[in-house]
Design a protein around this nucleic acid. Structure first.
Lengths: 124, 124
DNA sequence: CGGAATCCATGGTGATACTG
DNA sequence: CAGTATCACCATGGATTCCG
């Protein structure tokens, strides 16, 4: 289980990388509220570039977490939504977010202590 | 809560980036079994470079998740261990790992479907 | 509207060599 | 043993432009 080359660990690692990237969680959490069109997502996540949103959605679609429905009208319309698999991911993500929120203060405090100690070391 | 510039979201995002990097989870999960010295960690995580292990441990220490105890003997000895905060992170991480393990098959299947569909599109 | 393609800057990462 | 320092590389991501 600790061998990083084992298939299980590689899969977990891949998943964590996907979770860890800047946009996946934002997209999943936004889509968690309901299906969205491409530019709706852009509006709700103003800091994401078009390129990164496209790539993020492609990856999520490839992993089977997000569905992509094209309506070939004019103008074209593309709806994204969470699949059941995507929805099921929201719980563990929520657990992680809850942990983060509960421990923001402790982490920031630790960081300040660490940085202060580092400065002190420089001064000495 | 969806504003990526809000302090809460930035903290979560930072945490997720830390979790998402290749080494943090491996280190935390290894240290979860008990304190380890620097080279013990290297041996248990063979794929990590010395540099990356150092950087990962520094970040974890700065965040207050890992403690670093130096024994200035000859040869020098440095012990790393999870702090209580670090231990508390193991639960949400475990939840995520459990999810990943439970859904490895579904994800791989989705990926193969996606790639097959992409190949088909190229062939057409 | 919903992309794809291209260019380019930045930084994360590894390999190597050196130090206390 | 436990690092630090330096370099070189390549993937990530932003900005811009073009297309169906």
């Amino acid at each position: 289980m600790k061998d990083p080359t084992s298939p299980v660990c590689r899969t977990i690692s891949t998943l964590l990388s996907r979770i860890g990237d800047k946009w996946t969680v934002l997209v999943v959490s936004t889509l968690g509220e309901g299906p969205r069109r491409f530019n709706e997502l852009r509006r709700e996540i103003p800091s994401v570039s078009q390129r990164m949103l496209t790539l993020t959605l492609r990856n999520l679609e490839r992993d089977g977490l997000v569905s992509r429905a094209v309506t070939p009208s004019i103008p074209p319309r593309v709806d994204y939504a969470l699949t059941p698999l995507g929805h099921s991911l929201r719980e563990p993500i929520q657990a992680l977010s809850d942990w983060a929120i509960a421990n923001i203060a402790a982490i920031h405090e630790a960081q300040h202590r660490f940085d202060a100690a580092a400065d002190e070391a420089v001064a000495a």
